[in-house]
Amino acid sequence: MEALLTSTALVALAEMGDKTQLLAMLLATRFRKPLPIIAGIFAATLVNHFLAALVGHQAAGLLDAPWFRYAVAFSFIAMAAWTLIPDKIDEDAPLKAPSGAGIFVTTLVAFFLVEMGDKTQVATVALGARFANVYAVTAGTTLGMMIANVPAVLGGEALAKRVPMRALQVGAALLFLLLGLWMLAGLLGWA
């Protein structure tokens, strides 16, 4: 349960103002069909985050040395700093569905590719390394992405004007920092 709740909270907050959330708003304003966009976001996130959690879990299993656990703890602290850097997306870039593909496929491909190397994917790798349950981490990070992106699709630009993105980014950064420090404290025998 800890893996699910931690993963959900971290990713939901880290996604606020992230480039994939901006992509969700952009898709919503361009295509104006929320259901296939939401379905595409869900499918892309589920696959992407399952693979990321699996990579993290496998890396933790292969590299069970203390230095690797320190690396995971420091990666959470680095994620805290990275979360404070706001993402931008080029809203003037042409965004058209590939020939023969619908809004779902366009969203699926766009989200999957934009999420590659994104801070929420890197966080999912770290969470997969931290917790022994790939499925709980995948479910939590996917739920966190949906918590952040469904309102972005449904509310679009109105949401961006009302939600204090900077405060959410700072909150996410604090959660990453606390998780990293908690791991370090455990490794040093302080917790």
Rank of each mutant, 00 (worst) to 15 (best):
N48L: 12
M146Y: 06
K119D: 05
A73H: 05
A28I: 05
G140H: 11
G117F: 04
F131M: 06
L184W: 07
L10K: 04
I147N: 00
T124I: 08
D87C: 09
T8E: 02
L184Q: 07
L27W: 02
P151F: 01
L184V: 15
M165G: 00
I147K: 01
M165T: 15
L27E: 03
I147D: 00
P164S: 11
S99W: 14
N149L: 05
D64Q: 15
R30F: 08
A123M: 11
F42K: 01
K119C: 00
T142M: 06
A123T: 11
M145V: 10
A173F: 07
A24Q: 01
R166S: 13
V150N: 00
A173N: 08
V163M: 08
P86G: 11
F68E: 09
L154T: 05
F111C: 06
G128N: 09
T29E: 15
V55D: 03
T29W: 08
P98G: 12
F50Y: 14
G56V: 05
D92A: 14
A123H: 01
L4I: 05
Q58M: 13
T20K: 03
T83L: 04
Q21N: 10
F74H: 03
L187W: 09
I77H: 03
I85G: 01
A80M: 10
F50G: 09
F42I: 05
A52W: 09
T141E: 07
N133V: 01
K33W: 03
N149P: 01
P34S: 08
A172Y: 03
V153F: 01
R30L: 06
R130M: 12
P98I: 11
A9Q: 07
T29M: 11
A28E: 04
A158L: 08
L26I: 02
G17V: 01
L168S: 06
M16W: 01
D18A: 14
G100V: 12
M25W: 00
T20R: 06
A71V: 12
P164F: 07
I37W: 05
P34E: 11
P151N: 03
L181P: 04
G100L: 12
T8K: 06
T106C: 04
P66F: 09
P164E: 09
L159Q: 03
L54I: 04
T124E: 08
G155V: 00
A81P: 06
R32I: 00
V72W: 06
T106V: 05
G186W: 05
Q121V: 05
L143V: 13
P151H: 02
V125K: 03
G189V: 07
Q58Y: 12
F42S: 06
V150L: 00
A12K: 00
R69Y: 07
Q21V: 00
A80T: 10
K88E: 15
L143I: 13
V150I: 15
F74T: 11
M145F: 06
M146G: 02
G186C: 02
K119L: 10
L4W: 10
L54C: 05
H49T: 02
L178T: 11
G171Y: 00
A185W: 07
M1W: 06
A52C: 05
